[in-house]
Design a protein around this nucleic acid. Structure first.
Lengths: 356, 356
DNA sequence: AGCGATTCGTAGAACGTTATACGCCGGGAC
DNA sequence: GTCCCGGCGTATAACGTTCTACGAATCGCT
């Protein structure tokens, strides 16, 4: 393989790394257009003090050299025109939907989106966030962050931050989420309305006890609704992972007991799906023997063979509005905003009146 | 809100942006440790020429100031210790699995992973790739890129590139993929073995005709296998999107015809799931009336209510080995490598002998 | 004691942008 | 003809690293 020689005008420096091509810089552009780099920079930024003639010559040079600004260099002084999204679990389709809501908004505002996988522990999540700060992102969207709020405030003091799907008003950043307490209450009301009384709840096993975390809010909503219906003695919360495997594990817990509840409300669709699969495989009729409800309205749950009763959070809208909030913040707003959307019940075929 | 004053030793500069905290720089660290920035840099990089005493003082200063290197600044001269992953469709679980294979390997090698959403068009994909180059990534993993190979070679001349799930030996970059022709042949053999003859195939509707694209290879594998079994007159290829909706659309196509095929092999599980859901909703028995097979072995397909026959590509291994290849390349290897893994059939409950 | 070799530390020039501060030029008002 | 002013272009200093030189000790050997 041979390095492609760029037969341009004048001295052309040998590429530094062997076999690796060099990209055109603003200086190259300026040289070709016969202007100063400062002038080229002005054209690039659309800044004041540029004659039409110069603009045209510079732009011509840019396209001719297929110039692209070096984001690292930009990050040294000004903005990178890039926002970071930190997502804990790419497997969970909820996050994908938030993402689909986010990206077009940022795209329209000429900002790139870069995603950092946060892993499953608080340490790895924090490392991902710090990594984005290291990269000089212009702003950050954190989807269901697990780190303590003090950490969030610290990060938010460095750059604009919007937190999605984790509630609670904050001082230095914006939050947008759906009302998870209300969401789980919708499910409980729905199940009670069908005649259920033995309603169990599956929540995420996680050491942190921050009340703003969504699974905590859902558990709270479940408990409150049970109490409201006079079912406080039937409250039954099983903790597990939020994954298919977590659903299997929860099923094992239920099956290891004397009797099954008549309905199970999982705090996430993924867990509900695992549960459902386990019941199905064992020939336990859903919803005949036990009703199952999830939370998130993930696309898989819509499929006819599954048809899972769940709660719609409006993940797409969450993403869209989060992007709007971040853009506002990057434009200079500093007063915190905190948006709460209303969830809606999506009744499908995995819930029905109890047999008895 | 008040900016937190960092009550450190000596002159502490006012943060440039109002309300935004300033991070410690290498100079701050050096000053505090009483050494030159060059020395601090040596310690940071683990370079030669550092006494144990100095190393200790500098490291102490780093932790005290909770110093983090500025990646943008690093990108200006050396490496960013970050690799970029470009993924076309985050909704497709196959990509998530590749990702899960990738990240631990890079993590172990002290490299951050950043993901760029490539969108659905070739233009948006190219923009995402260029964006990663702008950010001075040390290397790139492209998962099922759609851009022409000439573009890939151009990018690969700038930085190390590994292409995942798109075959064909290349000159300037590595490729790793499973043998998609063989994979689809496995499905056809399986279906023929069950007694099917009217086997249709669903492929991705995409204008590019590069033969290395996976859906092209699968279609080729299907055709070749059909011919091998003397079924060339039964070859029936429907093009659609690779999504649930695409599956619905394909179902409509089949239902609008005089008779259904006895088996359908979709080139991707997502499409198979959409198809399945449509059939199910219309009361068309699967596999009684029609057998359905997918491709990818995505987690959803494993769930008991679905239990989809499919092909395992080993997405996790694909990701792991792609990471290894990229690390090798970043370490200096320039001869291209191209790895082909063998797929395996995963027979489940959506395929059975035809009724007739 | 003399002298090269080794070890440890520092100076300073990049890297590619941005943005401030300035200079030059032409033209209108006096 | 001055003077000023707005429009347009340039010079240059950052930004926070990396890394090549190079200088100053110290050490080992004769």
């Amino acid at each position: 393989m041979h390095v492609s020689e760029q037969a341009e005008t004048g001295a052309d420096p040998v590429p530094d790394l062997p076999g690796l091509a060099r990209r055109a810089t603003l200086r190259d552009v300026a040289r070709r257009a016969g202007v100063s780099t400062a002038a080229a920079s002005k054209v690039l930024r659309g800044a004041y003090g540029v004659s039409p003639g110069m603009r045209e010559r510079v732009q011509e040079a840019m396209t001719a050299l297929s110039y692209r600004p070096n984001t690292s260099a930009r990050g040294m002084r000004g903005k990178t025109f890039t926002v970071g999204v930190v997502i804990s679990d790419v497997q969970n389709q909820f996050y994908d939907q938030v993402l689909s809501g986010l990206t077009p908004v940022f795209g329209a505002a000429d900002h790139k989106v870069l995603i950092a996988p946060a892993g499953t522990t608080m340490e790895s999540e924090l490392a991902a966030v710090e990594g984005m700060v290291d990269h000089r992102m212009d702003g950050l969207v954190l989807v269901t962050p697990l780190v303590p709020r003090a950490e969030l405030e610290r990060i938010a003091a460095i750059l604009p931050v919007v937190v999605v799907a984790r509630g609670g008003a904050a001082e230095g950043y914006d939050t947008i989420t759906t009302d998870d307490e209300a969401g789980s209450a919708l499910i409980v009301d729905h199940l009670v309305g069908l005649g259920h009384r033995d309603i169990a709840h599956i929540t995420l096993g996680w050491s942190g006890d921050d009340p703003t975390l969504p699974f905590r809010a859902r558990a709270r909503g479940y408990e409150a609704a049970m109490r409201r219906h006079g079912l406080e003695d039937r409250i039954d919360i099983v903790t597990t992972a939020w994954s298919h495997q977590g659903g299997f594990d929860a099923a094992e817990v239920f099956l290891s007991r004397p009797g099954l509840p008549t309905a199970v409300h999982a705090g996430a669709d993924v867990a509900a799906l695992g549960l459902l699969s386990d019941f199905w495989a064992r020939g336990i009729d859903v919803p005949g023997v036990v009703s199952v409800a999830g939370y998130d309205n993930s696309p898989i749950g819509m499929l006819a063979p599954i048809s899972l009763t769940t709660v719609e959070q409006g993940a797409g809208e969450l993403g869209m509005r989060a992007a709007d909030l971040l853009l506002e913040r990057m434009a200079g707003r500093t007063e915190p905003r905190s948006v709460l959307l209303a969830p809606t019940l999506v009744p499908r075929s995995t819930t029905a009146a109890p047999r008895a």
